[in-house]
């Protein structure tokens, strides 16, 4: 393993860790989705990129490379539909919320 892929793996795991800490610490579901989905997705993408750098243009490397956009789109669409569903489900926003302009559309 070369140095760049080791660094990418460590950075990715650090981002995963931040995402999971956010999943435990933040007050409501909307903020948890903010930290968790995106930090964790970016971290995992970084690990897959390290896999591509390690194996080069072989079958594993190319598959890891096309797994990155797949993961990107899957997790963005998933986060969007979860946050919309949670709002329609009737979950309360946290007390710290300053503005909510979606309320008028929901009714």
């Amino acid at each position: 393993m070369n140095n760049i892929s080791v660094i990418l793996i460590i950075v990715g795991i650090a981002f995963d860790l931040f995402g999971c800490i956010g999943l435990l610490r933040l007050p409501d579901l909307y903020n948890r989705l903010q930290s968790a989905t995106k930090c964790v997705t970016l971290g995992t993408c970084s690990i897959l990129l390290a896999l591509f750098l390690h194996y080069g243009f072989t079958s594993v490397g190319v598959k890891a490379l096309i797994a990155i956009p797949l993961l990107f789109f899957a997790s963005t669409v998933g986060a969007h539909i979860l946050i919309r569903g949670a709002y329609k489900y009737g979950l309360k926003l946290t007390d710290k919320t300053v503005v909510d302009e979606y309320k008028e559309v929901d009714q």
Binding site: F18, G22, L26, C39, T97, V99
Partner: peptide, 18 residues
């Protein structure tokens, strides 16, 4: 976002804007 999650005071001010 990592800074906001890790800092002890959690400086967040969430909201939905149009």
């Amino acid at each position: 976002v990592a800074y906001r999650v890790l800092s002890p005071k959690m400086p967040i001010k969430p909201g939905i804007v149009k």
